[in-house]
Amino acid sequence: MNAPMSDDDAELERLLAEVSPDELGRDAVREAHRQLEKDLLRLADPLPPADFLTQVMAKVEAEPRRVSNAELRSATVITLVALAASIGAFVSSGASANGVAVSLARTFVSAREVLVGFGSGLAAVWRTAGLPLSVVLAVLVMVTLVGFRRLLTPMNAKAVS
């Protein structure tokens, strides 16, 4: 329950004196306030709409949860441990800086071959079947992607929008 009014008697007397200079008037105000307090204490908070909780939870479900500091710390630790382990494995297998450079150059060469091959393939499609085949393939890919997207959309997304 609320703190007893007697603790603030001096302050209340000062405030009462502001309202009414004479004792009789102060008594009347005091009594009116007492009655008002009784009436105010009978008031209650209104109930929110019936679907309030559902609406709040739908909004909460639609909201991506913020990454916590603990999760961030764990992710950093995992990344650093994985990096340290891979460097350790790399060093322990006897690889040197020269070896790394050679593998990197080999990757570039093979990537160039892949790109040239892809370009030749596209040129061949264009020359043989031409535009209609390309359009059909593009439409097929788009329909498949849209289908996948519809399948993966969560059910509650509709309730929120």
């Binding site: 603030d8 302050e11 405030l15 309202v19 306030h33 008002l36 105010l40």
Partner: peptide, 9 residues
């Protein structure tokens, strides 16, 4: 408490 008094008044 003072705010309460003024609001009641």
């Amino acid at each position: 408490m003072a705010r309460l008094f003024r609001a009641r008044e």
